[in-house]
Nucleic acid binder design. Structure first.
Lengths: 222, 222
DNA sequence: CCAAAAGTGTTGACTGTACACCCATGT
DNA sequence: ACATGGGTGTACAGTCAACACTTTTGG
């Protein structure tokens, strides 16, 4: 049994999701270096000394998108040979959910400025990043059905239709309006605010907020 | 942005579950080397050169337990500082499910011979291995409810009560016999064989087998 | 007054749960 | 004959899915 400490490249990649214009978006960065220089890729990179992968993910979130409050969860570890031309590179991937409003791009970086792409219309990605995004989407869909994580994609106040729109977009199917309101109301996760959303040429909508913005598992759901 | 390739120790640990005597068991090995020499631990170790973590997991399964057919799934990657006295060691953990019958211990290894412990009565474990086992148990419980993975814990033929016993043990609660049979039968996952289990002082039990022994997701379940 | 999205209940089908007795064998 | 686990059906309650119209505003 030949056991040796093998030095490896250990990296972190983060799939950052948000909702914008009723679409699910993913944050991408144009690679500044080889390999795949100039190609779109997930934000990520090698771990710094003494840094854990989750710390690295938080660092990347802060560096690339100035994000403070965010839902972050480990996704999967990809380390097959062939995934990186440099050889044995192992990446611990994470996925993050955040409301669009909390993201501030650092204008100091020019070429490296990140861009949100619709999750279903991504450009060709470096490495195996398309696979990682697909995996993250699947995980997000599953999580919607038995947790309250949707709170981490929406702004502080939102209309019931925005909420339903988030579910419809991510699950990729239309939901019945009356049944959705009935079911979601029964969960007691949100409460109406005193605000209403006005200014459109239509009946004004009540604005709601989440009672708690902490990740919670639900019994059942959609 | 200080990006450097940091060499790290990369290891794999495998939580091997099986059913024996109506109990859920975990395979442990007494550590032959420091750190934690002589203490019980999950089978695992450093990745060999050019080896991926999943390949390493399969290698460990074969080396330690002579296992051929097995359900193997990546569990989680643990890399916090403080989890290993040697410093930055990152472990990609896996969990495996296998019928007790297919496991053959290599008699050549004496002190390193693995032992099955009841999952709820483990000795004190090295590293953060108790945490890894707890995480694996949670995952297994969840998987029982929406997949058919139970097939990978049971022998080829089994009685309906053995099947129900596996669910009861892992979920940690009693289930209604009639409802269990009704629900499970409706899934069309198993079919009766022509064999019956006789020799006990009681009515003989029909023996069943899984129609397919491939991992499948179910719509709903328990 | 018209367009556009907001908001609201009922019914029938299905699914889940609770529950008790007879059966076939070995000793 | 009896002890032991094997095997079976029904009824009620709760949940899910389908479905259409009225309300309120801005233009």
């Amino acid at each position: 049994m030949n056991k040796l400490i093998r030095p490896r490249g250990l990296t972190t990649d983060v799939v950052i999701f948000t909702m914008e214009d009723e679409k699910l978006k993913v944050l991408l960065i144009k690679r500044a270096n080889e390999p795949f220089k100039g190609m779109w890729a997930l934000p990520g990179g090698f771990l710094l000394e003494k840094e854990g992968s989750q710390e690295a993910a938080f660092r990347i979130l802060k560096e690339k998108a100035g994000i403070k409050n965010v839902y972050l969860e480990q996704l999967y570890t990809f380390d097959g040979s062939g995934r990186d031309p440099r050889g044995s590179v192992c990446t611990v991937s994470y996925f993050a959910l955040t409301p669009r409003q909390t993201i501030t791009f650092d204008p100091g970086e020019d070429i490296q400025t990140p861009v949100f792409f619709s999750a279903d219309k991504l450009p060709k990605l470096a490495f195996d990043h398309q696979g990682i995004v697909n995996y993250a989407k699947k995980r997000l869909q599953a999580k919607l059905e038995y947790t309250n994580v949707v709170y981490s994609l929406l702004p502080k106040v939102f209309t019931f239709n925005q909420l339903q729109g988030a579910y419809e977009t991510i699950l990729g199917k239309k939901l019945d309006k009356r049944n959705f309101r009935k079911k979601f109301s029964a969960l007691k996760l949100i409460k109406p605010t005193k605000k209403i959303l006005t200014g459109n040429r239509q009946r004004p909508a009540k604005l709601y907020q989440f009672i708690s913005r902490k990740p919670t598992e639900l019994k059942k759901f959609f």
